[in-house]
Design a protein around this nucleic acid. Structure first.
Length: 114
DNA sequence: AAGGTGACTAACA
DNA sequence: ATGTTAGCCACCT
């Protein structure tokens, strides 16, 4: 058992390029499906030089939650589009089609190495 | 040490 | 369909 946040980072790094995962999904893989807030906290305190693809983590509704933090939602949307993901823009913010891009973490069992 | 907040989610009214 | 309440986990004051 490692540090909770470290576990979060490890799982986030397993998200393949071109796919996205929800906070609740990551939380479920770490410990509890209700720990989504902890996941958000972990990513918020994520070291700047880390190779964790934090931009691939979005809310369960497919929308980008952040607006005015270290990294604006616009930056996250830009990164996702760079991965080949279609990001829809709206007045409320940015959104992603989860039915198309949601990550299927079944690969973890097989020890995927991407 | 204790209470409040937050990059969340699901259920209830 | 929108608005509010409750639950979980970690961080901050």
């Amino acid at each position: 058992m490692r540090d909770w946040n470290a576990d979060v980072y490890e799982i986030v790094q397993r998200i393949p390029r071109g796919a996205v995962a929800t906070y609740g999904q990551i939380a479920a893989l770490v410990s509890s499906p209700r720990a989504a807030r902890g996941v958000g906290m972990a990513l918020r305190h994520l070291p700047e030089g880390s190779s964790v693809p934090w931009h691939r983590v979005i809310s369960s509704t497919g929308a980008i939650s952040i607006e005015n933090f270290d990294h604006p939602a616009e930056e996250q949307a830009n990164l996702l589009m760079a991965e080949g993901i279609t990001v829809h823009r709206g007045e409320k913010g940015y959104s992603v089609d989860l039915t198309r891009y949601l990550w299927q973490p079944a690969s973890i069992d097989k020890g995927v190495s991407l």
